[in-house]
Design a protein around this nucleic acid. Structure first.
Lengths: 138, 138
DNA sequence: CCTTGACCTGGAGTCGGCTCCAGGTTGCAG
DNA sequence: CTGCAACCTGGAGCCGACTCCAGGTCAAGG
């Protein structure tokens, strides 16, 4: 059995700069995420420079999706911790994702409501403006 | 013509504590919003205590809706400034709201996409879990 | 080889959005 | 009147999520 954490010898890897470019995160943020435990320790060259493997990118993209849905870093840390702990935590991870999914559903409903209210306000203003321009076509 | 800013003598008004209770904001936050210019200066008693009028609450609720849709305070400041500047700014306000509405639409689409991805992940995990429990019904 | 841009670490700084506090004042129930 | 909870102000502090920096090391093209 091969170690899950070794730097794969013959896999194409990316430098932190290349990953930054691909993901839109800054190198600083990538290091910060790693320090914070959102990302497992990335493989290194002999000279201690990070080399990101394909699997790292997959995980990163998942994280970014969670972030885009407003999940706080603390929750991502919990999730990453469970993930690192192995298969025994699948049930917990599932629960976490489901809870987040529910939060998401609430937020989407709220957004919809507010968007509608906003639309009303907008059409109200549009009418107001139309009347203004009618009486005062400066 | 009556001043738009005088404390109406015979209108039912609310103390900051009552407004806090009704809106879910803390008194500190209400004062902060006022200091920041999101809210016009609230009418005061002789002893300098705030008394919120109905119109203040209406505006507050509008602000809260903007906040719920993720509008940053800086933008709300701009909007509040325009509003305070009178009717001549209706076009600008309209533009601001429309821009925000567009942002909102984008965010809703992104959320939808991510929710879908999340659902896939969830069902993947659910299946994994089911198989686990089948082979290891501890 | 050597240069030079990309990379490393630890730690300080920034920004948005509140939240808390000290030290004093107000206003209503009794 | 008086007591006491609720209010006032200015300013410091906090939290999350980065962002920047100094001072040093690495790696790949020429």
């Amino acid at each position: 059995m091969t170690s899950a954490h070794a730097l794969p010898r013959r896999e194409r890897t990316l430098t932190i700069g290349q990953v930054a470019e691909r993901t839109g995160l800054s190198p600083d943020t990538l290091r910060y995420y790693e320090k914070a435990g959102l990302i497992q320790r990335i493989g290194r060259t002999g000279g201690n420079q990070r080399r990101y493997a394909a699997a790292d990118l997959v995980w990163l993209e998942f994280l970014l999706r969670l972030r885009e849905t407003g999940m706080p870093i603390a929750d991502m840390q919990r999730y990453a911790g469970l993930r690192a702990a192995g298969d025994a935590t699948v049930a917990d991870r599932l629960a976490l994702l489901r809870a987040h999914r529910a939060v998401l559903a609430d937020r989407m409903r709220a957004l919809e409501r507010n968007a509608q209210a906003l639309d009303e306000k907008i059409s109200h203003y549009a009418q107001l403006l139309a009347r203004q321009q009618e009486t005062d076509p400066s």
